[in-house]
Amino acid sequence: MEVLGIFSDKESAGIAVEHLIKEGFVERQITSLTSVAYPDGVLVRTEQRTWFRWFTLACGIAGAGAGFLLAAGTAWLYPVKTGDKPIIAFYPTGIVTYELTMLFALVGTIIGMFLEMGLPTLRKRVYDPLIAEGYIGISVSIHSGGEAVACGADVLPRECIGAVAALPPDEQASRAEEIMKAAGAVRTIAEDRI
């Protein structure tokens, strides 16, 4: 379940985020929906570490293998008698290997990116077209509820679930809506109401 608030300016969006956090929602639950990129931390702070580049690397290595097999392997498996010329050619194998490495890496980057983004989703998620016009969406994903944990110093931020999480989801949602409205949201959309 997700609750989205639409703000016409970034100041009020920022206030909303601040109030949400104050209320007990954690940063991991809050994200901004914007049609342009804002520097991290301006509105919300997100996890900056990504893994898809390792995926790119893996694809590149796979591509190198594929390229080598394509150039050298096919020549080996389907030999053509070429006098005393070697069956497998040195330079061409290198070139083809290189090109396929790059191809796989490029494709891998895109696939990895989407995988990491979790796109495309089959689920319809809360959204408002106003975002495209420069409005800012602040989205809160509501925890299934019932297990509030205090965010002590020894608790890692991503394991931390705020106090508000102890409430039932509906209540969490309406709390968030209230906060955002109070901060100046043009409108709020909760997921189950779509």
Binding site: T31, V36, D40, Q48, F52, T109, M113
Partner: peptide, 30 residues
């Protein structure tokens, strides 16, 4: 693809763009 412009999406997007740019240059040269 269901892009919403979430902060995390933007972060990944920027990294991917940079990576793609870095990868495509040697391809173009080749």
């Amino acid at each position: 693809m269901g892009w919403r412009g979430a902060a995390r999406e933007w972060a990944i997007f920027h990294q991917a763009s940079t990576l793609m740019a870095a990868l495509i240059i040697p391809v173009a040269v080749s």
